[in-house]
Nucleic acid binder design. Structure first.
Length: 164
DNA sequence: GCCAACGTTGGC
DNA sequence: GCCAACGTTGGC
């Protein structure tokens, strides 16, 4: 399968694991574990490829939004944290012979020059089709189109308070 | 295979 | 801290 590079948005709570944590890892690389949602598992399995790029999004925090960029650096592989009873996301229905959950490795690329807030993303008509801004969306990993990706990078260069 | 109950996510 | 929206579970 040789499809074009894809773009993603991946949420994490900064108090639990934020972009500064990733940036501080050896080689800026860490596995994105703890996904226990089948839609996301399937994205990992079927659509994630090394070389894809992803926005790092801070959720469940005072001002949620996009804070940086990372790169996917592995194929999907079994999430071993599901095997360990001491882990928060232990799942007794997953075992090494029949792993139910997958993860990918990601590498820190850079912080954005500024936080692009969820409020801004919601207010921008060009981004109305993003899963992120749609009602009741609960995916913690979701696709971003190339057009949306570029648009958000353009927003980075603008003043967040009001555009243009 | 339906669907109520429950747990989780995550914005506000 | 509240609660809407959603996914999952399990009884039937």
């Amino acid at each position: 399968m040789d499809t074009a590079m894809a773009y993603w948005l991946m949420k994490s709570e900064p108090d639990v694991y934020g972009i500064d944590h990733l940036a501080a890892e050896p080689d800026g690389t860490e596995h994105w574990d703890g996904i226990r949602n089948y839609q996301v598992r399937n994205l990992f399995r079927d659509r994630f490829q090394p070389g894809d790029q992803a926005f790092f999004y801070h959720s469940n925090t005072k001002v949620p939004g996009i804070v940086g960029i990372m790169e996917v650096v592995s194929e999907a592989y079994p999430d071993h944290t599901a095997f360990d009873p001491d882990e928060k996301y232990y799942d007794p229905k997953s075992d090494p012979d029949h792993p139910r959950w997958l993860m990918v490795d990601v590498r820190y690329i850079r912080h954005l020059d500024r936080l692009i807030t969820l409020a801004e993303l919601k207010a921008d008509p060009a981004l109305a089709d993003m899963r992120l801004v749609q009602r009741g969306n609960r995916l913690s990993v979701m696709p971003v189109s190339e057009v949306e990706w570029q648009h958000i990078l353009d927003m980075e260069k603008q003043d967040g308070n009001d555009n243009r």
